[in-house]
């Protein structure tokens, strides 16, 4: 089972509920709302753990967020912002 962690090759700034992530080329991704919650939950956690924690923070059942979380984790990995070990 994969565990996810934030890439060490990004710079991260926070303002209120927003997370700004810059890669080496200087392209910046801005996360807001649920995306921020997911980003904060990833460090060293499995997909199931992340789904559970996001659902708990949103106050909804796991199944309601599972698909959304999986898709989002996958896109962050594709963009090189997350690493799946």
């Amino acid at each position: 089972m994969s565990c996810f962690r934030q890439s060490a090759q990004v710079a991260v700034a926070r303002r209120d509920d927003r997370v700004f992530i810059a890669q080496l080329l200087g392209n910046v991704v801005v996360l807001q709302g649920n995306a921020t919650i997911i980003w904060d939950c990833v460090n060293g956690s499995s997909e199931e753990d992340i789904v559970r924690r996001v659902a708990a923070r949103a106050g909804v059942p796991d199944r309601d967020v599972a698909d959304e979380v999986r898709v989002f984790l996958s896109s962050l990995c594709q963009d090189g912002l997350l690493i799946a070990d």
């Binding site: 090759q9 990004v10 710079a11 700004f20 810059a22 200087g26 910046v28």
Partner: peptide
């Protein structure tokens, strides 16, 4: 002002990553 400060903060981090690499 906030956007400018975020930009500068990220620039510090990115430039340090380049230096490390």
């Amino acid at each position: 002002h906030e956007v400018a400060q975020v930009r500068i903060e990220l620039a510090h981090g990115v430039v340090q990553l380049l230096c490390d690499s």
